[in-house]
Amino acid sequence: MTIKVVRGNPTPEELAAALAVVRARAVTASEEPSTTEAPRDAWSDPSRIATHRLPHPGPASWGRTYWPS
Results as ranks from 00 to 15, higher is better:
residue 6 V to F: 12
residue 6 V to S: 07
residue 6 V to L: 13
residue 7 R to M: 08
residue 7 R to A: 10
residue 7 R to H: 14
residue 7 R to E: 15
residue 8 G to W: 08
residue 8 G to H: 12
residue 8 G to D: 06
residue 8 G to M: 14
residue 10 P to L: 03
residue 10 P to C: 04
residue 11 T to R: 13
residue 11 T to V: 07
residue 11 T to E: 09
residue 12 P to K: 12
residue 12 P to G: 05
residue 12 P to V: 12
residue 14 E to Q: 10
residue 14 E to V: 03
residue 14 E to Y: 08
residue 16 A to V: 00
residue 17 A to M: 07
residue 17 A to H: 14
residue 18 A to Q: 12
residue 18 A to S: 11
residue 18 A to E: 12
residue 19 L to W: 06
residue 19 L to Q: 09
residue 19 L to V: 04
residue 20 A to T: 10
residue 20 A to H: 06
residue 20 A to C: 01
residue 20 A to G: 02
residue 21 V to G: 02
residue 21 V to S: 00
residue 21 V to T: 07
residue 22 V to I: 10
residue 22 V to P: 02
residue 22 V to F: 14
residue 23 R to D: 06
residue 23 R to K: 08
residue 24 A to D: 08
residue 24 A to Q: 11
residue 24 A to F: 09
residue 25 R to M: 11
residue 25 R to G: 01
residue 26 A to E: 03
residue 27 V to T: 01
residue 28 T to D: 10
residue 29 A to I: 11
residue 30 S to P: 00
residue 30 S to N: 07
residue 30 S to A: 15
residue 30 S to R: 13
residue 31 E to P: 00
residue 31 E to Q: 10
residue 32 E to L: 15
residue 32 E to Y: 14
residue 33 P to C: 03
residue 33 P to S: 09
residue 33 P to M: 10
residue 33 P to V: 14
residue 33 P to D: 09
residue 33 P to L: 11
residue 34 S to V: 06
residue 34 S to Q: 10
residue 35 T to M: 11
residue 36 T to C: 09
residue 37 E to K: 10
residue 37 E to R: 08
residue 37 E to L: 09
residue 38 A to W: 15
residue 38 A to M: 08
residue 39 P to V: 08
residue 39 P to W: 14
residue 40 R to V: 06
residue 40 R to F: 08
residue 41 D to C: 04
residue 41 D to T: 12
residue 42 A to V: 15
residue 42 A to Y: 14
residue 42 A to S: 13
residue 43 W to R: 11
residue 43 W to S: 03
residue 43 W to P: 00
residue 44 S to P: 00
residue 44 S to W: 11
residue 45 D to C: 05
residue 46 P to R: 09
residue 47 S to I: 08
residue 47 S to M: 12
residue 49 I to W: 13
residue 50 A to M: 14
residue 51 T to S: 07
residue 51 T to M: 08
residue 52 H to M: 14
residue 52 H to Y: 15
residue 52 H to Q: 15
residue 53 R to T: 02
residue 53 R to C: 02
residue 54 L to M: 07
residue 54 L to I: 05
residue 55 P to T: 05
residue 55 P to A: 03
residue 56 H to N: 01
residue 56 H to C: 00
residue 56 H to Q: 07
residue 56 H to I: 03
